[in-house]
Design a protein around this nucleic acid. Structure first.
Lengths: 186, 186
DNA sequence: TGTACATCAGTGAACGCGCGTTCACTGATGTAC
DNA sequence: TGTACATCAGTGAACGCGCGTTCACTGATGTAC
């Protein structure tokens, strides 16, 4: 089954994409080599033709998650005025769609809890990506509020996901939207 | 080794206390029956004399974590005026001590990510405890801001824990303190 | 063009390990007489 | 008071299972002549 190099690279990218969704959907700890290979109908044996180790996979999958989220979430609204950008970011981040589409959601919110217990290697990679992300907020609301606003957004999203009642979850999102606006004004 | 009932109850409480610290320190997924029993120098076999199952342990340990944190963190400052209470809560929640003492820290911040993937049972218990906790904030800052402020605090604490550099982590805490104050004012 | 060979992505069984749970057993204590 | 027995918290080995990793093997494809 020797394929041209581009085929292997294609498979590699698909595995990364699936892994980046699985780490968000299931949590870093609950993604297995088998579950990732199975996502492309392959068996565990060839995993090591694509990645050095499971740790290598997780690190790469985190990077992939950041890259695609930036593309999907921030690049598209980059040209807006501050007021319009602020409004859009808050509403999109704290939307029920973002809350429910965990596999494609913001890696900071979804992963920061597990990353805080991960290796220095992974924490350093996470830190770089977080800093890059906050750079998009800083020119809009100032440095301190960029961090605070993002803490509110990510914390609010996690809170909305961690309760059982959907009604209460919606309330959390709405209260956080109101608070995010108050924060920017305050 | 038949002891009076009080002895077994004492051991049970110690196991719960240790488990409640381990779930925060290591994460729900990384606490094992063995690690909990080992914390009292006991062997795995007698675990089932104290708990129905590992799930039962986790649920009880979460409840225990909420109960003791409320006692330690909120009950002690309950009598303060609003301004003094707000200041104290923000500073204590976003202190380096709280960031670094993970085993005794706020269960909402530490567990919400894993709870969002847990059973309905656990999510319902978590929701009740979260609501009780937010009731302490509501008379101080109003309903919407209670939720938003707590999202900012818990999100900020998690962000500070998830980066590698201590210097940047301190910065996150400080920026979140400033933002929390702006939120209350805004 | 046709044939022989080299390549290497992918297979699937095996490895040692830690997990949650079960269970026959131990032995210090409380109770009955 | 002293002895025999019942209790039951705790022990430690065993269970089946899924994990990350390794490795001998397969077989479709590209290359050389």
């Amino acid at each position: 089954m020797r394929y041209p190099a581009s085929h292997k690279e294609e498979v590699h990218q698909k595995l990364l994409k699936n892994a980046s969704e699985q780490i968000r959907e299931l949590g870093l700890d609950n993604v297995s080599v088998k579950s990732v290979m199975k996502s492309e109908r392959m068996t565990v044996g060839s995993f090591y033709a694509h990645f050095d180790s499971k740790d290598d996979l997780l690190k790469s999958a985190i990077e992939y998650a950041f890259a695609t989220t930036n593309l999907e979430f921030y690049d598209k609204i980059e040209k807006r005025t501050d007021a319009s950008w602020n409004k859009k970011v808050i509403e999109r981040y704290l939307s029920d769609y973002h809350r429910d589409t965990i596999a494609l959601s913001c890696p900071v919110a979804t992963l920061m809890s597990e990353v805080s217990r991960a290796s220095d290697d992974i924490r350093a990679a996470f830190e770089n990506n977080l800093k890059e992300l906050l750079k998009r907020f800083e020119p809009r609301v100032g440095k301190a509020k960029a961090t605070g606003l993002f803490a509110l957004l990510s914390g609010g999203l996690l809170m909305a996901r961690s309760v059982e009642s959907e009604e209460y979850s919606d309330e959390i999102l709405n209260d956080c939207i109101k608070s995010a606006r108050a924060l920017i004004k305050g």
